[in-house]
């Protein structure tokens, strides 16, 4: 999952960004509204965490521009404004959620996670595909009832493929969702992660779940009996 954090406080950029990264998200950070809008328009984020009072362009103007340009990315407004009219104005500008500073880090992570689920049309924390179970809240995976230990990047890849289960996902899409802007993934890093993931998933049950479609991409689905 890829998240854009638009926040002018350097300390919040650091702490919130760090917390999101440790929770398995690929995080890009913007310190002002103009840069935030540019990134939001030129990347495919799952969630944008957006401060309202920003230098150069305020968060609400950014949000309206984004919606006007047809971007439906889920947006969590993060602000020091706590009046009802501020919340209403924020939500009416196209925000999906609203969190007032100071906030609990856990709550922020839970809300980002909830918005990620909504991004893929899911309301549950548990994704089940054949004998594969993924707890998106606890970041845990089971295959045929056995726990599967995955590295953060492997988990992110599996969750992303699971969210788009039944669809062919291109390597470019995987890179866009799992790696932030500053990271430059090697050409084989996705393949390498996929290989490791396949190996770990096959330990409990050898039936392959992730298929390769030559020249197209990858698909996660239960093999037809």
């Amino acid at each position: 999952m890829r998240v854009l954090l638009v926040e002018d406080s350097a300390r919040l950029q650091q702490t919130v960004g760090d917390a999101l990264r440790r929770s398995g998200y690929a995080v890009d950070v913007s310190a002002d509204g103009e840069d935030g809008l540019w990134r939001a328009e030129n990347n495919d984020y799952d969630v944008i965490v957006l401060d309202i009072m920003l230098p150069k362009m305020d968060g609400l103007t950014l949000l309206k521009s984004l919606r006007k340009n047809g971007k439906a990315t889920h947006v969590l407004l993060l602000t020091a404004r706590d009046r009802v009219e501020d919340r209403v104005s924020g939500l009416r500008s196209g925000a999906d959620d609203y969190l007032v500073k100071p906030f609990a880090l856990e709550e922020l992570l839970a809300r980002v996670e909830s918005l990620c689920r909504r991004a893929y049309g899911s309301k549950q924390n548990l994704i089940t595909i054949a004998d594969l179970e993924i707890d998106t809240a606890g970041k845990k995976v089971w295959r045929a009832g056995h726990p599967v230990k995955l590295k953060p990047r492997e988990y992110q890849l599996l969750e992303y493929l699971a969210h788009r289960s039944g669809e062919v996902v291109t390597q470019t899409e995987i890179e866009a969702h799992l790696y932030h802007d500053d990271a430059e993934p090697m050409s084989n890093v996705v393949e390498s992660a996929l290989s490791s993931l396949r190996r770990k998933l096959s330990q409990a049950n050898p039936a392959p779940l992730i298929q390769t479609r030559r020249g197209l991409g990858y698909i996660l689905e239960a093999e037809a009996p």
Binding site: S9, L12, A80, P102, L105
Partner: peptide, 28 residues
């Protein structure tokens, strides 16, 4: 009052997130 609240909300949010981050991932 709004300005005062805002002036303090951000540093408090920073303090809180710093503390929570340190508690959640103490090794880091």
């Amino acid at each position: 009052s709004d300005d005062l609240a805002h002036e303090f909300r951000t540093p408090i949010a920073e303090l809180r997130s710093l503390a929570e981050l340190a508690l959640k991932w103490p090794q880091n």
